[in-house]
Each structure stands twice: as C-alpha cells, then as structure tokens.
C-alpha cells in the first residue's frame, strides 16, 4: 500500500506524492518480482523446476533402447519374452494395463502418448499420467527403502526416491511386482528390476528422461532408453476411464488410428 499517510503529515518521504519514494517503491517491487520468477517452484534453486504438463510428440510400442535393436536378453529373459508374445497373440495373456487400466509400470509409462504432469511440493515430486490416471509419488532426498521393506509391497510402478544433481532430477525405483511389461510388445522384467531415471530440461521447452534398467535375471547387462517430451502448459489432463473414449492422440507420431 502506497498511501500510508497519517492525517497532518506533509510532503515527506512517506508521502505517495513524493516522486523519489514512488520511484524507490517501484524499483523494490520490480527486483522482488524478478527474484521471484527465477526462484520458481516453492523457492527452489534456478534450474530445478520441471513443473507443468509434458507430452511426447512421438510414440513407439517397442522400447527405444539407446543404440537401437533388441534388448540384451539372458536365456531366461528371451524365454519369458517369447512366452509373452505367444500369449498376447493367442489371447491367453491379457495386456492388463490396456484392458483393465492398471498402471503401465516403469519404464512402459515413460512411452505414454498421452500428456502427464509434474508437480513439485516440499519433500515430494509427483507425476500424474493421464493414461490410466496413474500417479507416481517420489520421496525426495530419502534413501531407497531396504529390500525387507519393499518385499511385502510390490507395486506396479515400484517405489521411487529422488534427488537433484544440479539441473538433473535423478529417480531411483525398486520394489516392482511382475504384473507389468517393459513396453507394449510384452517385453518382460523380473520383480528384482531396479531403474534409474535422469530427467533434464533440454532446449527451450523440452524434457528428456533417460531410464537405465538393471535386471540381471532378464538381461545380460544394464541398458538405457531415452524419451523426450514437449512442454504443453496449454493442456490440462483429462478424465481417463477404461473402455470409454479418450482424448485424440492422432497428432502423436507413431500412434496408429485410435
């Protein structure tokens, strides 16, 4: 408020009609606003804010391993993959994420052709996916729970902890169940899989997520896949209910007519 002036005060510094005071107030307010926009989410350091809605511009049913090609399966992994492919083809194995809208799991959800939103709150990063209305809750700056804490609670999306390394958000996830595929072709994983994601803003309006999968039961080595998203703060997440109509995603390259 600029007009705090007692009755009887004359044209002193506190008077709003003093141009020097007005100038000083304007300068102070501008400085405060500039500092505020640089600090962004909840007073976080500059560069540590991925809040907003993100949406991929391309989709692939097969997980895009860095370097291309097939995943480096062990014998057990290859056998499991062949079994999944055969089961999906015959109908004996159902893609539950698509039929019953249970969560896709990690890393399959990273390929989603639907938008998602990242929200930062003190101590937690939350990712809300329009697909299946899945929610990932990431405890920030906390240690990964021990195996004995994870074993009784195997989650579709695993249990995630995160921390910042400069401008990179690092997410570690473990404690998965075996009810999800790695991608839409039915690629398998075991419940001892652990994933690490490195999220980083690139360019003016893009976010990349490089996920590394560690699952020695299924794969001969760790491997990574990279996903890129466009910032779309013009978009709000919609309802998503199994069996009902969803938003038009035909603009996403690689999506077959849905």
């Amino acid at each position: 408020m600029l007009d705090v002036m007692s009755v009887g005060e004359t044209n002193s510094f506190s008077s709003p009609r003093n141009p020097l005071r007005t100038f000083a107030v304007v300068v102070a307010l501008s400085a405060a606003l500039a500092a505020g926009s640089a600090a962004s989410a909840a007073g976080a350091p500059a560069g540590q804010d991925m809040s907003g809605v993100w949406w991929a511009t391309a989709y692939s049913p097969k997980i895009p391993i860095v370097g291309g090609g097939d995943l480096p399966y062990t014998a057990a992994g290859k056998a499991a993959y062949d079994k999944n492919i055969a089961g999906l083809k015959s109908g004996e194995l159902i893609d539950a994420a698509r039929r019953f809208c249970v969560p896709d799991g990690i890393p399959r959800i990273l390929a989603t052709p639907y938008p998602f939103e990242i929200i930062h709150t003190p101590g937690q990063t939350t990712m809300i996916y329009e697909l299946n209305h899945a929610i990932r809750v990431v405890a920030m700056d906390k240690p990964m729970p021990k195996d004995e804490e994870l074993i009784p609670y195997p989650y579709y999306d695993g249990h995630s902890v995160g921390h910042w390394e400069g401008d990179t958000l690092v997410l570690e996830t473990a404690g998965f169940n075996e009810k999800t595929f790695l991608d839409s072709t039915g690629a398998p994983h075991s419940d001892s899989m652990r994933t690490t994601e490195r999220l980083r803003k690139i360019g003016a309006n893009q976010l990349e997520d490089v996920v590394t999968v560690h699952d020695p039961e299924m794969f001969t080595r760790d491997w990574s896949a990279r996903f890129v998203y466009q910032q779309r703060n013009d978009v709000r997440l919609q309802d998503y209910v199994c069996g009902e109509k969803h938003r038009d995603i035909s603009s996403v390259r690689g999506v077959k007519g849905r």
């Binding site: 004995e148 074993i151 009784p152 609670y153 195997p154 169940n177 075996e178 419940d191």
Partner: peptide, 13 residues
C-alpha cells in the same frame, strides 16, 4: 499378511 510372511523368509515367488 505379506509383512509377517516376509519376516519368515517368504517372498512373492
């Protein structure tokens, strides 16, 4: 419940 079973050495598999 799984918590009690896990303490007895059970796992989901």
């Amino acid at each position: 419940a799984p918590g009690g079973l896990a303490r007895q050495g059970w796992v989901p598999k």
